[in-house]
Design a protein around this nucleic acid. Sequence first.
DNA 1: TTAAAATATTCCTTGACGGGAATATTCTTT
DNA 2: AAAGAATATTCCCGTCAAGGAATATTTTAA
Lengths: 118, 118
Amino acid sequence: MELKTFSALAEPNRLLIVELLRGGPLTVGEIADRLNLRQPQASKHLKILLEAGLVDVHADANRRNYRLRPEPFRELDEWLNSYRLWEERFDQLNRYLQILQAQPNSRRNNDVEDDRQS
Amino acid sequence: MELKTFSALAEPNRLLIVELLRGGPLTVGEIADRLNLRQPQASKHLKILLEAGLVDVHADANRRNYRLRPEPFRELDEWLNSYRLWEERFDQLNRYLQILQAQPNSRRNNDVEDDRQS
DNA sequence: TTAAAATATTCCTTGACGGGAATATTCTTT
DNA sequence: AAAGAATATTCCCGTCAAGGAATATTTTAA
């Protein structure tokens, strides 16, 4: 999994930008306006998103249209896939533990406060 | 989407810890060993993962067993869901643009290098 | 009770990051 | 050519996060 993706999304304003771009490509100025950012900060954040591969740019005369790229999201999705298998095992383990707990025969010594009488 | 999840996963060693814990619960020392971390750093990273809800602890005498929690991954998955819809629209738009490009009648002025003759 | 093991916490230092302000760059319009 | 709009870049500063080293805490073992 690409670390850059997580770092890029870990910043509040950048996550907002990403969410915003779901509605379609936007210009730097539009992004700055809607998120109440100053233009330089918008540009800086977009640069980082760009280097992380989360967006790309299409120059249109004076303006630059930024839009989301689907690849990082697909990658994230595949990464999560390797955890879905793990989740299943996790659930199975839980069920197993509940079965164990339902059997009152063997005493366990964790969780037990302290019951020796000096 | 929880920002803490992204920040927690944005750190190299913490991402490694998470990947490592897929194999099952591990002790602080085991984690430090396998990742060549010093024990204090392992503890610190685990604390952050704990506060982000990515892991939980089960005290067992001297040792502490850390294990992954499934919830953040499910949340991430649901967040990605809202992007799958967007991806579809993205693909449709791409197809549409290719159709436009296949029609050589209307001339576009973006992307065109510069073809005026002096 | 004392020593040792496993873990957590604190203090310190350093480097990266984000915002503010100013400035540079590029393109358009007149 | 000159002015203005849209964007990028630079410099400065304050903050925060991470590693190193030392120490505190808790539990087991002797």
